[in-house]
Design a protein around this nucleic acid. Sequence first.
DNA 1: CGCGGCTTTGATGTTCATCAAGTAAAGTGG
DNA 2: CCACTTTACTTGATGAACATCAAAGCCGCG
Lengths: 243, 243
Amino acid sequence: MIYIIIQTKVKKMELSRKVSNCKSCIYRSWAFKNLSAEELKIINAKKVEKFYRKGENISTEGDEILSFMYLQNGLVKLYKTEINTKEHILSIAKPQDFIGLLSIFSNTKHIYSTTAIEDSIVCFVDLEIIKKFIKTNGTFAIDFFEKISTVSDSVIKTRIDINTRQLRGRIAYILLFFSKHIYSSIRFNLPISRKEVAELIDMSTENVIRVLSEFRKDNLIQIEGKNIVILDIKRLEKIYALG
Amino acid sequence: MIYIIIQTKVKKMELSRKVSNCKSCIYRSWAFKNLSAEELKIINAKKVEKFYRKGENISTEGDEILSFMYLQNGLVKLYKTEINTKEHILSIAKPQDFIGLLSIFSNTKHIYSTTAIEDSIVCFVDLEIIKKFIKTNGTFAIDFFEKISTVSDSVIKTRIDINTRQLRGRIAYILLFFSKHIYSSIRFNLPISRKEVAELIDMSTENVIRVLSEFRKDNLIQIEGKNIVILDIKRLEKIYALG
DNA sequence: CGCGGCTTTGATGTTCATCAAGTAAAGTGG
DNA sequence: CCACTTTACTTGATGAACATCAAAGCCGCG
């Protein structure tokens, strides 16, 4: 029920296109806390909010980087398309995250693609404005880099965490990730397919399914399609910790 | 012969401790190109240069982050110590690189350790000074973040490159990495042990040796201890490209 | 209502880590 | 400086972990 209501609200946003002003939205994120009312006004005037339905592409490898992308609502995957049409998911951005690593400073073109994995609202802020404020507002510069450094470092840490573990540890990781980090609940709807889970934690789709079934048989989780309930979080954490 | 000479020079540096001033050193790095003579003077006054012999530890996980570390000379590995005394190497910094990812903005403590893998000179600049210049010199802020963003993004890209390849592709990667990126020569001395190669590209020591032997038998490389000559770079690149 | 993509399970084969065992090289202390 | 110890290197054999292949049921969508 609640889900339906949110959906409707989001649709309205899509039509109006300028839902929130930055004081009530971006202001909440600590990266922007030290911008003056004046500066927020400038951002607010030139920002564009876009609604993306689940599955819709937001940006693609090779595209010019023109905006800083800030995720207001929803979930977005950051991934790389390999030669053989395979995809490799790097990370999943949640609300209040910025989307797309540091490429915005080191590249002129996106090196990864982004797609909404849940209905999402992305706020595009002209990159030149951000750069201008970095130049003119030193405190903002520090705040901003703290924020994006955290995201970037956590991508690196996650990659290591995943690659040093074997399959059971990886699945435990992904379950704990969605439960703790994304949904703050032991009960949630997996927003991505088994295949995408595989692409995210470097394993085959079949083995994702196999390990999930195994966990179900062991009464670690309850699972029906995308619907997941974590039954024994302590044991799951142990599996993650042991690799 | 030349090697001996450099060695001696480096030893002298160690004794004097303040070899170069920042105008002639850091100035060369484009991250610092927009600092005024005044600002460079401040950095110069408070910087500390330290010499590290091959194998010496520079910083350790858990240490307070007090300085921005800039590698003037040598090679440094950035790694994480796992529970079971195993090490996991994230990246290798070469001269002109900064050492240690973005943690300097997102953490107060180092999350990785660093050790010299060749005799190295590291320049420590008080972190507060860097932060102050980021606040007061907008152009420097942008330059600086361009630089560290590049390093950080390349760590992420490398991790993906390695983890999506199998053993032969990984060894090809590491050989091309040292040849092209570090030494700019098809003939070089591997600065790390087989074990460290294994820790860098996620494989067992035995298999590092096995694949290297295989490459030698296939006339791809010539190898005597740490001494490596790449004989067929085209074929090596193909092995890397195919995974 | 039929087609393609997602999901699931079992069987098979490959890739790779681990174990074992021996040689070479590099420190270390008397 | 030499005997001794430790660490690095190397090869082969074995088994575990995992991907791939195959086949069938399921679900959503045009």
